[in-house]
Nucleic acid binder design. Structure first.
Lengths: 211, 211
DNA sequence: CTTGTTTTTGACCATTTGGTAAATACACGA
DNA sequence: TCGTGTATTTACCAAATGGTCAAAAACAAG
């Protein structure tokens, strides 16, 4: 009765599980795991608390489920980086996609940031299993581009970190940005800035090596 | 008796308040405001919970106090940016200082990140009163440098954002970096990368304006 | 309509947690 | 040494919160 282990989920089950997970994304991203309450999730989802526990075994399971779903979305742009494409274009497109994700999916970005900030207690396995291999593969691709002289030589790992940091910053630190920019829409000017920065960094031949 | 409004704090008071605030920094930065408990702070500080509430009016006041203290430390490097110094050197030095702060004061970085992530509910006034004016002033200085042809033309606001994002990333996302770099010390290679990136971006005359 | 199954709810429970009150131990100057 | 204000502890409390359970309601199939 509680576990419909392999029965196909009914229409109503699909709908309610989706409502719960969406509400959970809202609440978890806004308050973190410990700060979120089942009552908040229940209210946001328009369901009663016991009803929510009818669909999920507990707060923990809801959180893990949301994080798992997030992981796919999150890795997508990096996975989409094409080893056969034009190196500079590929990376600048990646930057642009990540920036658009910050604008369009800020909840996801904040949920992820929250989890990593707390030391990734629940996501660590996912990071090792999914992110790490993809990261290593993409680093190798970028390194190959650099060795072929198509990009300026920089540490690919820190290049990726800097892309993540600068793009996600606009979602994760939005509260601060709102104060400092006073309501100006940052996305377009940010896009221009980041494109300039990474193009300058990666255009071959211009790289002044530090003394 | 509870409020020693203007009495000079005794030796023991100073010591215990400091112990509490240090413990609070530990716990708040690791678990966020809602995730932190007074018991955790008490244990970390080596005091009993009621004893802690003898020195502070409540969890909220502890948090606010820690955040206030943090603000000074946090603004220091930006405040130290000298309008009379050499532009490129000033900014690269600022990057370096911020990176070192991420390495040496990760708790402070994470506490700050936590607070902003939650929408800066308790820090918003501080941001407007302290950070905003300083931010505007420094933007003006950088803009002046650019207008004088000493730096390449980019948006100073996004420049500062990118410095914050890239440097604080190494503290705030350390859990992720640990997984991806597998125990390699990132600070030195990160420093080299960031110096290269920002020098390339800001060296005048090399700035390829996007089409 | 009847029956068996799924979904939802209302009433509860145990634990955690921020906070309090009163009693006790302690420091220290007169 | 004594007394007074300071510091600390012990024993609590009330609210919040994650979770349970049995029964009611809704629903689907014959």
């Amino acid at each position: 009765m509680a576990e419909q282990i392999q029965k196909k989920p009914s229409r109503i089950q699909q709908r309610n599980r989706r409502k719960i997970l969406d509400a959970a994304l809202d609440v978890f991203s806004a308050h973190g795991f410990r700060g979120a309450t089942l009552d908040q999730i229940a209210e946001q989802a328009g369901l009663s608390k016991p009803n929510i526990l009818y669909y999920f075994d507990g707060k923990e399971e809801i959180h893990v489920t949301v994080l798992s779903q997030l992981m796919e979305t999150w890795l997508d742009p990096l996975a989409g980086l094409d080893p056969k494409g034009d190196p500079l274009t590929e990376i600048l497109t990646y930057v642009q996609r990540k920036l658009e994700m910050s604008r369009d999916l800020p909840r996801e970005s904040r949920l992820f940031a929250n989890e990593i900030l707390q030391g990734a207690p629940r996501m660590d396995p996912h990071l090792r299993a999914d992110l790490k291999p993809l990261f290593d593969a993409r680093c190798a691709v970028i390194q190959a581009w650099m060795d072929a002289g198509k990009l300026a030589q920089v540490d690919p790992r820190h290049l990726i970190f800097s892309i993540w940091a600068t793009t996600q910053h606009y979602a994760d630190f939005q509260a601060q940005i709102d104060v400092l920019l006073e309501g100006q829409e940052p996305t377009d000017t940010a896009a221009q800035f980041l494109q300039t920065m990474f193009r300058n960094l990666l255009t071959p031949g211009q790289n002044s090596t530090p003394a």
